[in-house]
Amino acid sequence: MNKTTELFAPGHRGCAGCCDALAAKFMLKAVGENCIVVTPTGCLEVFSTPFPESAWNVPWIHSLFENTAAVASGIEAALKALGRKNDTKIMAIGGDGATIDIGIRGLSGAFERGHDFTYVCVDNEAYMNTGVQRSGGTPFAATTTTTPAGKASFGNLRPKKNMPQIMLAHGSPYVATTSIAYPKDMMRKVKKATEITGPTYVHVHAPCTTGWGFDGSKTIELGRLAVQTALWPMMEIENGDITGVHKIRNKRPVEEYLKAQKRFKHLFSIPDGAEIIKKIQELADWNADQYDL
């Protein structure tokens, strides 16, 4: 007999220590049962809804990979037209690939049109469902199965696409960054996002045990390190102004974060590894300086 009261039910097929399962749990905990969730194709979708089972205790729909925001906008329009919108929250939960890469057209359109919904990007920085291929969310110098390190490459050559800034440019009244390593921060921001009228965006950093190469017990620890190194700044931006920044008490060197993951392991053995680590440190320092972390 299942004893939990959580809206995201156990029995799902997420890996032991899964970041997406944590993200889904926190989001539903924050928003409650009066919501409708849209999820694109991806790990979260596959491990939570193998027919005839579903981990979702709220109404939930998966259509395709790249149309999540458009599906959400149709739901919102329907609830309005049918007089059923009331306090029902519409929440789209997409991975980095679905959000940053293949789904960005529909997401941009839905935000520009101003639908009343919240889009949450759970960013584990690669296409994990298909076997850890590079996405626009993959960080600089990380190896993935399509950006392997080799004699002619140190891994992913480009930095992460700055998705929160893109969503901010749409005039969204609320854009926030958070991490599954800070459940209370994440739940507060997701709840706030759903309570603000209009298209709101929350970008959640989510370390993937399988894709990044670390022990499943360290999922939250890795997320914390990303924040403590300033590689993942957590903030809130309301009506275009930064209104809250998560301050770092003891800033840690990026090596601590990089060393803990297989995807950055090569940086500690290749000839120009130290130089690349220095560049990553510069990215972190820029964040710390830019956002006064």
Partner: peptide, 12 residues
């Protein structure tokens, strides 16, 4: 269409 919370039959 699938019933809500039905993964609980899967004892992980």
């Amino acid at each position: 269409i699938v019933e809500p919370g039905s993964t609980v039959i899967n004892k992980t």
